[in-house]
């Protein structure tokens, strides 16, 4: 059997793959118009700066609660909890981690979309640095007791470092490098899973 014959066969057979029906132009146009009427203009959406401040504040509260817990905790059974159990992570840290991972997910998705579609990615570096700072705070917090989450944070850190150093000039090829990093380590998928698991009240490890 020759390659040419197979490719001809494949091309012919593939034409019958998911043959599209007539395009429902009017229905879709109405839905688009409706959605745009209710959408918030990009300029009025909260920026990374305000999110970053919110997350930093949540972490600061988490650190405070954590220290107070240590000071006033007289129950030795808490200290005896096995390392690596998600339930061991104080609620404030867990909330901060979940919120942070959500912001990273949105940021990475937006960065990829903008880089691929020729959108403005030159302002991504400052946002990446802000998220990077929070990521490192979390890596040094009790959140790191969850080894799977720690592993995810390390991968997020790597990708954010790359974006913080991103050079958008044509021909640099850096976006492909970042894109591959995100894909090879399934960063977005794991972010989704961690966030979904937290929203469902499940431990991170159950979803990862």
């Amino acid at each position: 059997m020759s390659d040419d014959r197979f490719e001809d066969f494949l091309r012919e057979a593939a034409e019958r793959y998911h043959v599209p029906p007539e395009v429902p132009r009017e229905d879709m146009w109405l839905a688009i118009a409706e959605a745009r009427r209710h959408s918030v203009p990009r300029s009025r959406r909260p920026g990374w700066r305000s999110w970053g401040i919110g997350i930093a504040a949540a972490l600061a509260i988490g650190v405070g609660i954590g220290r107070l817990s240590v000071l006033f905790n007289e129950d030795p059974s808490v200290a005896a909890t096995p390392a690596g159990e998600p339930s061991e992570i104080p609620v404030a840290y867990r909330v901060a981690a979940s919120e942070h991972l959500g912001q990273v997910e949105v940021f990475l998705t937006g960065f990829r979309a903008d880089a691929r579609t020729g959108g403005p990615v030159t302002d991504a570096a400052p946002d990446a640095r802000r998220l990077l700072a929070t990521t490192r705070l979390l890596m040094d917090s009790p959140v790191a007791n969850d080894l799977v989450l720690q592993d995810l944070l390390e991968d997020v850190e790597l990708v954010l470092i790359q974006i913080a150093q991103y050079d958008a000039r044509p021909g640099r090829g850096e976006f492909e490098f970042i894109d591959e990093s995100i894909d090879q380590r399934s960063v977005l998928f794991r972010l989704h899973s961690a966030i979904d698991a937290d929203a469902a009240g499940m431990p991170y490890q159950g979803a990862l």
């Binding site: 998911h18 599209p20 429902p24 879709m28 745009r36 959408s39 979309a113 579609t117």
Partner: peptide, 24 residues
């Protein structure tokens, strides 16, 4: 549609594409 084989999904993705197109 070719990617999904599903009219509802194809509509959803097409609509999302044009919403983003106009937005950006």
């Amino acid at each position: 549609y070719r990617m999904t084989g599903d009219d509802d999904l194809a509509r959803e993705y097409t609509q999302e594409t044009f919403i983003r197109t106009f937005e950006r």
